[in-house]
Amino acid sequence: MTDDIYTFKVLRYDAKEPEKEAAFSSYRVRVIPGLTVLTVLLRIRDELDGTLAFRSSCRAATCGSCAMVINGKPGLACRTQVAPFESRTIVLEPLPNFEIIRDLVVDMAPFWNMYERISPYLIRHSPAPEKEIIQSPEDRKRIDQFVNCILCACCYGACEVMRREPDYVGPAAFAKLQRFMLDSRDERPDRFLESVNNGQGLWGCDTLLRCIDACPKEVRPTDAIVGLRKSLVKYRIKRAFGMDGHED
């Protein structure tokens, strides 16, 4: 059996040695059905090349560590099976729209900065009740898809706007913002949206839906962006008619 031998081409680069250009290293690996890209990467590092750098942890598509570009598409290495690919060559590259630290490890700092920009936490002014804050199952359901986001940044890697506008808030942060805006327990005022009422914010999105395509957890960041735009417009209309007096 020779047809189960795959060639893994991995883009190598080290920000500590900027004089050396990025280049592919090739590894030949035997693949059995059920093997994921991450399993192969771990085997390469364990048995063939100890210097290969990539992030990984849970290997079950929950921690969001191993986002990378696999044969041209952003995805999680742990969730991607090798066998279904038609080609016997698998090309692995770091997520685009980020600086490379080493090999497949990118600098996520800009991603976390955008996440922090939208105040990603429940904001309340009312005193806490003795027990839980009552929330109906219907209200809980409204935030479901956005709660599922694992912050892996596949959507940032896939986003066309990100490419030309590095200061764009981006899909994951907006999904998180909508998760709080829609939460019946959150009391942030609608005017909070003014902070993202610009070209690098809510109006930056081209609605190409690449983020939806790239998401490994079936989150639809574009739904969040469209929803937030509607809320913003509603708020502006209310304000124009002087109806926003008791917002918070």
């Binding site: 429940l122 839980e132 929330q135 199952p137 209200d139 809980r140 327990r185």
Partner: peptide, 12 residues
């Protein structure tokens, strides 16, 4: 109270 989205019974 810190926002954890627990699943809810019909009574909230």
């Amino acid at each position: 109270h810190w926002g954890c989205p627990f699943s809810r019974f019909p009574d909230g």
